[in-house]
């Protein structure tokens, strides 16, 4: 149509060939409903293979191989290193302390996270968007700055609230509460990030139905909302647990790193490595990596397809 003159005024619609068939036409089949599975352009070309190779090579060199070597180093002397680590009371104490702190902080973050997610998704209030943005801040703050921030407020000597709390007999910095605070800070957004999308997707029709049937807010939450979001909560808990077990920098700043008292598993890894106990360092690291990788696999395998 290279030379068609498009500036001509449109002609009238006279030339329509046939009249439409009368009224009760057979219902047209639904558009696109039964489209066969279609694989575009079948076989991957050489570029696709090249990209595939680059990606696999990159991730293998950066993540997979090094990760594998940690396992290998941990078992260089068979199970000796692992046995040594697990029979050293200080290390065991550190592992238990890590677990304890992680458990408390996950519990706090779960309650807080589910609560704030419900508030964000189901209610309107001034400042909602600002709050939503602020909730992601802990992900981008340096762990060292987290530690510094907590010391400036809760430090026993010149913190904003620290001295008063200490007079009341509550030591926070260089003690377990401070480590719990630090851990809770860094893992704070994880439950929220999992639960909010689920809540949005579920909608509130079922909740309204339950209320209209006479269920109170608590019964509605327990019997309708919670079952609907339980997987989101579960993934949030698993990811928070991994993050909490593994926190290092923030805990290091606020813990004082006292052997047998406030030293966590991640601090043990550093200490052992710097004291030339590489076997012990790798064995402890292996245990921590196991928790992390297991968490990722659990979430990846059980998360319904199509959600991220």
């Amino acid at each position: 149509m290279a030379d068609h003159d498009l500036t001509q005024p449109p002609k009238d619609a006279a030339g329509v060939a046939t009249a439409a068939p009368a009224g009760f036409a057979e219902p047209a089949p639904p558009a696109r409903a039964a489209r066969p599975a279609r694989t575009r352009s079948g076989r991957p070309g050489p570029v696709a293979y090249l990209l595939r190779l680059v990606v696999i090579g990159y991730l293998f060199l950066l993540i997979a191989w090094p990760l594998y070597l940690v396992g290998q180093n941990a078992f260089k002397d068979g199970f000796d290193s692992l046995r040594d680590v697990l029979s050293d009371p200080d290390t065991v104490h550190a592992l238990l302390l890590s677990l304890q702190i992680a458990a408390i902080s996950v519990a706090i973050n779960t309650v807080f996270g589910v609560g704030i997610s419900l508030l964000l998704v189901r209610y309107d209030f001034p400042g909602k968007r600002v709050l939503n943005a602020l909730l992601d801040v802990p992900l981008s703050v340096s762990p060292i700055v987290v530690g510094l921030a907590l010391i400036l407020v809760y430090g026993g000597r010149d913190g904003w609230f620290g001295p008063a709390l200490e007079d009341a007999g509550l030591q926070i910095i260089f003690s377990t509460p401070g480590m719990v605070l630090a851990t809770t800070f860094v893992a704070l957004p994880l439950v929220i990030r999992e639960v909010v999308p689920v809540l949005e997707e579920v909608g509130d029709e079922q909740e309204q139905a339950a209320r209209s049937l006479g269920a109170g807010p608590l019964a509605t939450f327990r019997r309708i909302t919670l079952p609907a979001i339980k997987w989101g909560v579960a993934y949030g808990v698993v990811l928070s647990l991994a993050r909490s077990m593994g926190e290092f920098g923030a805990v290091k700043v606020v813990s004082g790193n006292v052997l047998g008292a406030t030293r966590t598993a991640t601090l043990v890894v550093e200490e052992k490595y710097l004291n030339f106990d590489k076997g012990g360092a790798y064995a402890t690291a292996f245990l921590l990596a196991l928790v992390a990788v297991a968490s990722v696999i659990v979430v990846s395998v059980f998360r319904p397809k199509g959600k991220r």
Partner: peptide, 16 residues
């Protein structure tokens, strides 16, 4: 239809 009467480009359209 009117457009086609105007620009006589060969046209194929799919419809159910």
């Amino acid at each position: 239809r009117r457009l086609h009467d105007e620009v006589h480009v060969t046209t194929v359209f799919v419809t159910h």
